[in-house]
Amino acid sequence: MPILADPIWPVALLATIQYVDAAVCWRPVDAVRRCLDDVHAPPLVRRLLTPIKIAAGSGLLLGLVVPYLGVLTCAALVAYFAIAVTMHIRARDLGRNFRNAAALGLTSALVSLCYL
């Protein structure tokens, strides 16, 4: 089956970011734990982060051969990061973590263009 996304490097990079993020959320490093504490993330959200991020990385890579899945995954990531940005705004946490969430949301939107 041919690879349909072009170029593929942004897709691969965003998938890698999602997998690495899933790994650091599995047993949160101090920076991740502080970020989650700062936005008052409930325990259920914390438990769901790793599977969500693994699913996102997998959806992005599978989207290389099933483009609508890649676009759908990017849309889900934009929604995910919109929620993250909202949580940071509500917590008045407008520093680096807020900027990271906003940048990854924008990146997810731009990566969706690789599938079109």
Rank of each mutant, 00 (worst) to 15 (best):
L77Y: 06
L113N: 07
I52D: 05
H40G: 05
A41W: 08
S58V: 14
L69Q: 04
P2E: 07
V20K: 05
N97C: 04
A101N: 15
T86N: 05
S112Y: 05
G95K: 11
L48S: 14
A79R: 00
V66K: 01
V11Q: 07
L116P: 03
Y68W: 08
L94I: 15
R47E: 10
A101E: 14
A56S: 14
A55C: 10
S112A: 15
L69P: 02
L60I: 02
A75K: 01
A15G: 06
Y115Q: 06
D37F: 03
L62F: 03
D93F: 06
V111H: 07
L13V: 12
G59L: 02
L4T: 00
H40V: 06
R33S: 14
Y19S: 07
A23N: 08
D93G: 05
A23W: 14
A31Y: 10
P43C: 08
V85E: 04
K53A: 02
R33E: 15
V65I: 05
G63L: 01
V65E: 02
A23M: 13
G95C: 10
R99L: 11
A5E: 06
A82Y: 03
S108C: 09
D37P: 03
F81H: 15
P67F: 01
L104P: 08
R34N: 10
A101T: 14
A91F: 07
T50H: 09
L14T: 06
C114L: 04
P67Q: 02
L61A: 02
P51H: 13
F81A: 04
I83Y: 08
Y115D: 04
N100V: 15
G70T: 02
A101Q: 13
M1E: 08
V39D: 01
L13D: 09
R96F: 15
R47P: 03
D38E: 14
P10V: 10
D38N: 15
N100F: 15
L36I: 08
I3D: 00
I3H: 00
D38C: 07
A76V: 04
G63Q: 02
R99K: 09
P7G: 11
P43S: 09
R47K: 12
W9L: 12
